[in-house]
């Protein structure tokens, strides 16, 4: 009985972590800024989730730690600039419909470009280094540098401006708390993508194969599935998600440079470790925790903002050494 209760607690405690942190921050911050910071943290978390979820799936299923993942974020952000420039007439108008259509076109273009580049990347680079972790690290770091330099060659070394659409500038007020309109929109889009991913993984046969492959690739093959084909699909989907994350992050910052992907890398790896390598659910909770912690601590003790995430990771690893929801056994 006692053991059952302990197992029950062990299973559900990771889910309680996010609400606990949100509630614990309330008395420390005060109600007004707390709501603003909570929405900011959730938005940041959801954007980080888009980038990190692809990486955790790629690692979980394929045992590939892709250090070039940040490059796909960068490509997504730059493609967004390229697509939105000719659509400036739509984004400058205050019509929400036109603004959203322009953003949707940019989102699809960013995902398609990063996904297509991911396809080539898997075929040309990753395929050569399956099962060779050291070579993976070296070749993906090298590829990151090359892609970033190619971005500079194509789009130039200067940072590019990526203004938010007119109707998504400014804030709305909930009580006395200002909430940036763009953050709410980004939160809605991010949640929609996360929900779509959840439904894909939970409700489709292919999603089932991916989840099984994360646990035991060999057995998936012995059941008749061509895991290599699944690898390519997952790699493309993972890089497409990174492109989406780049689009939303670039739009949020309103400026894009060739290091935009790099700026997210440390946080993304912290999320992967917190969530448990290979777990999309863990990645979601990890991303939200990191987003919230960054914003809360950035408000309370600005100098501690990045360090706070490393402390969060250390604390979670002391509690759950393999992360909140460990998946990959290999």
């Amino acid at each position: 009985m006692k053991e059952d209760w302990r197992n029950h607690m062990r299973r559900w405690a990771p889910y309680a972590l996010t609400p606990l942190i949100i509630l614990a921050a309330l008395p420390a911050i005060g109600a007004g800024p707390w709501l603003t910071l909570t929405v900011a943290g959730l938005t940041m978390g959801i954007m980080l989730f888009l980038v990190a979820s692809g990486l955790t799936l790629i690692f979980g299923l394929m045992d590939v730690l892709n250090f070039a993942h940040a490059a796909f974020v960068t490509v997504g952000a730059y493609v967004t600039v390229t697509v939105l420039r000719p659509l400036a007439g739509w984004t400058m108008q205050t019509s929400l419909t036109l603004n959203l259509i322009a953003l949707l076109v940019a989102l699809i273009a960013a995902a398609a470009a990063s996904g297509a580049l991911g396809f080539v990347f898997e075929r040309v680079i990753i395929r050569q280094v399956y099962g060779a972790p050291l070579r993976q690290i070296l070749i993906t770091i090298g590829a990151l540098t090359i892609i970033e330099q190619l971005v500079v060659v194509i789009w130039g070394p200067q940072a590019l401006v990526l203004p938010k659409p007119a109707s998504l500038r400014g804030s709305v007020f909930i009580g006395s708390s200002p909430i940036e309109t763009y953050r709410l929109a980004a939160l809605a889009v991010g949640l929609a993508v996360a929900l779509a991913m959840h439904l894909f993984l939970r409700r489709t046969r292919l999603g089932l194969v991916v989840r099984a492959g994360v646990e035991n690739r060999e057995m998936v093959q012995a059941l008749g599935y061509h895991i290599r084909r699944v690898f390519i699909g997952v790699f493309m989907a993972g890089t497409a998600l990174a492109g989406m994350g780049g689009m939303m992050w670039g739009q949020y910052q309103e400026t894009v440079n060739s290091q935009i992907g790099d700026s997210m890398t440390i946080l993304v790896f912290i999320i992967l470790i917190i969530g448990g390598l290979g777990s999309v659910g863990g990645c979601f909770i990890g991303a939200i925790l990191v987003g919230l912690t960054t914003n809360y601590v950035g408000f309370l003790a600005p100098k501690m903002a990045l360090g706070s995430n490393i402390l969060l990771m250390a604390a979670i690893l002391l509690w759950q050494p393999r992360g909140l929801f460990p998946m990959a056994e290999h």
Partner: peptide, 12 residues
């Protein structure tokens, strides 16, 4: 596949 349900193991 320990993380999948019995039904999902069979369905695969």
């Amino acid at each position: 596949f320990g993380k999948l349900t019995v039904r999902e193991n069979m369905l695969l």
